[in-house]
Design a protein around this nucleic acid. Structure first.
Lengths: 239, 239
DNA sequence: TTCCCGCATTCTCATATGTTTATCGCTTGG
DNA sequence: CCAAGCGATAAACATATGAGAATGCGGGAA
């Protein structure tokens, strides 16, 4: 049930059997939410954090005029709002991109873990640090790369992050984003986003059908995107 | 010496006398670095983290062609690369924006704190979570606000963050950024950045002379920027 | 003093991206 | 079955922003 989270953490450092059991025990019952359901809202003070068991979600910051910027996309096994354990007041929404299976972890449990399990706490801390590293890479892509390269980068990242948890099938993976949502993630208009997607297709870099993307030319895609996975901290070392 | 860090953490939660003493004891001797000195470089595996005692620094992600995106600006009292305690390999540079006084904290010491001081550890964790929240707000500004609003937002943030530590003098504070660096932070060309700065002046929102900015019309500036300081977690509550 | 060089500024011109509006195909619900 | 709504796509046009090149100012080095 929380095996994907365990798998993801173990890519970064070894976990003891006890730690794995603590993770399994900390989650509440699984729950299904429909597509577009707001799991947490800007302004909320949640008393539990959410583990994404199955499906995809995204974080978005809303501006006053209703415009929004998507700042992250979550894949299964992500601890999507772990930060609200300490941040307390949510500064953004978390919304289901697809139907999702989620489970809650009470902050009281996280508090207990943080008092008694320093290594596991560091691993949770690390996972929020990786989120921040992803934010930084997104900033670089938005600020200093072309719309085309930016879109390519997002696909590379989705590929690698789904590959971590065994969700890539050959060269093909899920990208359950409508073009309007993709536009909100890239900071573009949806019309220009459409141009960009079509150019990725015309250049024979990817095939994008419905919610599945197939990479036709990884080197071309990663080269265009200047993709370097270092920021995802995929090395396993003592932390 | 590390009083500014203590002050900043105490804005978010109470620290015990023991915790404050641990912070004071953890830092090594102060060191001066000149403007433009790279304190940490992309790719490094530092064995200590850096506390900024005096002066300003910035983080920047470099792309292959030498383009860079500034992803954060640090003010005195910031623990500028605390994340490399767990991230291990730096995914960006940290550079002095002005002459700085810095001090190092060995990762071995942080490790010890994380084993024995759960509350202090959570406070350090929180400070990295606030960094991430700032990244998200920057993403929204880059992706969904005009260049002018984005620049205004950066100034609001610098104002509030310096105000936290008593560095605002009336309505005036330091913004030690050349227009080229400001451009790298906003994701704009330096020519357009110049246009934007001049428009902020023409609208009588700010005065910007050398490295000092004086806010002439806070409501106008914050309104233009859609500035809402929630993301800076300025509430003091048990964490 | 003189010579640089970094920085702010201005101009001209190019273009990536935004805006508006419309069409078309699907799916869904009554 | 039809209506409604959503998503992808398209075309025409507008504009914010980028690129290149030039100027002038001011401080620091010799």
């Amino acid at each position: 049930m929380s095996e994907l989270l365990i798998r993801k953490l173990e890519l970064r450092d070894h976990l003891s059997a006890e730690e794995k059991q603590i993770i399994r025990d900390m989650v509440g019952p699984a729950r299904l939410v429909r597509s577009d359901f707001d799991i947490v809202c800007q302004g909320d003070h949640p008393s539990e954090s959410t583990l994404l068991l199955e499906g995809f979600t995204f974080r978005s910051v809303y501006l006053k005029d209703g415009q929004r910027q998507i700042t992250s996309i979550h894949v299964p096994g992500d601890f999507v709002d772990l930060h609200c354990f300490l941040i307390k007041q949510m500064d953004h929404n978390i919304t289901a991109l697809t139907p999702c299976r989620i489970a809650k972890v009470p902050h009281a449990t996280l508090q207990r873990i943080s008092e008694t399990q320093p290594h596991l706490t560091r691993m949770f801390w690390l996972s929020t640090l990786i989120d921040a590293a992803i934010h930084r890479r997104w900033l670089a892509a938005m600020g200093r790369q072309s719309a085309l390269a930016h879109a390519a980068h997002l696909l590379c990242e989705l590929y690698v992050r789904q590959n971590e948890i065994g969700l890539v099938d050959g060269a093909s993976f899920r990208a359950p984003l409508t073009q309007v949502k993709l536009a909100d993630a890239l900071g573009l208009s949806h019309v220009h986003t459409n141009r960009v997607v079509q150019e990725l297709r015309e250049r024979r870099l990817v095939e994008w059908l419905g919610d599945r993307v197939t990479v036709l030319d990884w080197d071309g895609l990663a080269g265009l995107a200047e993709f370097d996975p270092t920021y995802l901290s995929l090395c396993c070392e003592p932390r």
